[in-house]
Amino acid sequence: MKTHNSSIEHLQAEFDARIAEDAKIEPKDWMPAAYRKTLIRQISQHAHSEVIGMQPEGNWITRAPSLRRKAVLMAKVQDEAGHGLYLYSAAETLGMSRDQMIADLQSGKAKYSSIFNYPTLSWADIGAIGWLVDGAAIMNQVMLCRCSYGPYSRGMVRICKEESFHQRQGFEIMLTLAQGSEEQKAMAQDALNRWWWPSLMMFGPPDSESANTEQSMAWRIKRQTNDELRQRFVDQTTPQADYLGLTIPDPDLKWDAEAGHYQFGEVDWDEFWQVVKGNGICNRDRIRQHVKAHEDGTWVREAAQAHAERKAAAAEAA
């Protein structure tokens, strides 16, 4: 018993040392159970967000206003599917199967980014999502490129390149609208009004209420707190809104020269928790569509499996 304890202590010490020297933890390395659990939760939630996020954007593929926009949007949504796949693989290196992750998503046990529970009502929403939602995702993901878990960190490096492309495309949609007719400008402003606060919520609850932040920082899964990232996002995005000639729906937003940051108003955390708990406009539809696609595809997956087994059996017999 004593030797067992001391060997765990030894492994823990080794792990702590690797974290301290900023070395990457790899799948085969020993890691504390809680570290593994936290990563599985975070990476699978991230994967689910990529996949569920395909729905609000896919909602406009068949109605995109030009063929160029249609093709770009199709490519973007396809990228997000690729991100989901990549992240599921990263989570699988921690011993969680994709089937289990999908089951947890569908049962509501696992979460996805709550912003995708808001509806895309107009074409401008596609611009706003690219600009703000991908923009907020990048803030988070740039940080995660330095995450202590190797497969997650490497996945983020690859994903970040595509996300910044998405953000530019979203901004370009907004710019076109902002320079367009009165109707188009109004459409862009309305989208900003609806997506601004949910975008700030994407960084998660304030540090004072964030249960996981401290431990995640200690493990170097996260490098910045929710509030730090949120501030960075506001600092980066506010001048872009000015450039577009659009008004961020926050009367308290103002430049603080002394601090070198924008001050901004209080996020409505009640709304955030309401949506997380299932009271967003689209929560049920998002899961229902995921379940439906999965169930509609059951016979296809079964057929592929049966065929592959028959082929393998035939190859063995030959």
Partner: peptide, 17 residues
């Protein structure tokens, strides 16, 4: 393109995309 988010599994979503 109407298959977006409706394919039998994620790899197939990408292929159809």
């Amino acid at each position: 393109s109407e298959w977006t988010s409706k394919a039998p599994f994620l790899e197939e979503d990408i292929a159809l995309g």
